[in-house]
Design a protein around this nucleic acid. Structure first.
Lengths: 171, 171
DNA sequence: GGATATTAGTTTCATATGAAACTAAATCCA
DNA sequence: TGGATTTAGTTTCATATGAAACTAATATCC
């Protein structure tokens, strides 16, 4: 299969040379980290929440009762990260874990009243941040972004070791 | 200023609710990490290089003689990360650091012969991975991606604590 | 000239990460 | 039934990270 040359290095001098600032994996990494940092700050400062914890709360807040395994499937995080996030959330009284009577290996998770309160507070803030980011784009560009992210994720998952995935650092 | 509502949650039931899988910061994070993982594997397995080291080599390989400060400006990495990457690269004999006679706080970095050899080997592999990723897109979409990444990065930098930036983890 | 403030880069320290090993509970299957 | 395998989740351990403190050299200001 002939690969589509990147449109970013069309000029002849650039063919075969690598300019990091135009290298898409690098750009994605820097962008993702800039955005994450901005959002993580809200979670951390106002709610003492890490990103893994936020993801757990987002899923439990939306879906109701979930097990850790469900969350692993829903959040692209590995089980160690989920386990630790859940441990911290339960310690903080934001999530309650009750062991499933039908299968006592499983813990069914649900937000506590305090957890729900925080959830209701965070969601608008998170949406507002996202809106502020997307506000840099025209509505059509937003739709294009949606499609591009989906296509790239699908492709990237086939290139990755395991499938899709999350890790701590980037290029 | 009225914020443009995200086009991904137009349906009324979704307004004000947050679906993580559609949340752009989350999607960016997962995509970036999937891509990074796939590329980092090449660097690590074949060359025993970390991503920070790869970035340093990419910049020194392209620009010739640079100081650590130059690299900080060019790579969105903080000085600790650059310092460690450079230390490992010099220990491995891939980069040579000579202290600048004019300002002896500075170390001027350059690839050694071994470093250049590796650099020439990696660049095509990295470009090939990028091409394989972008090959999921139409040429027009590639151009759109280029523009979207630029716009989003510009906006994100204004939302972030410091400016643009890199960190270890994401949402 | 010489005290003070900056700048380049390194080290320390506390925290986050994930692969691999582990524990406990189900499930398989003979 | 009862041993072997799988699955849910936790713990261990080695590594990566970055804020803050630090060192050394230069620039500034009087």
């Amino acid at each position: 299969m002939k690969l589509n040359p990147s449109p970013f290095k069309e000029t002849p001098e650039e063919a075969g040379s690598l300019i990091l600032e135009r290298f898409v994996p690098y750009r994605l990494s820097v962008l993702s980290n800039t955005v994450s940092r901005a959002i993580a700050r809200i979670y951390a400062e106002r709610f003492d929440l890490t990103i893994p914890e936020w993801r757990v709360m987002a899923q439990v807040g939306r879906h109701g009762r979930l097990t850790a395994s469900d969350i692993i499937g829903l959040t692209a995080m590995d089980k160690v990260r989920v386990s630790r996030a859940v441990a911290r959330l339960t310690a903080a009284g934001r999530v309650e874990a009750t062991s499933d009577a039908a299968d006592r290996r499983r813990q069914v998770l649900a937000l506590t009243a305090a957890g729900r309160r925080i959830y209701r507070e965070i969601v608008p803030l998170a949406l507002e941040r996202e809106a502020r980011l997307l506000d840099a784009l025209e509505p059509k560009e937003c739709q294009a972004l949606d499609r591009l992210l989906a296509k790239l994720q699908a492709r990237a998952s086939t290139l990755a070791p395991h499938g899709e995935g999350e890790l701590a650092e980037p290029d």
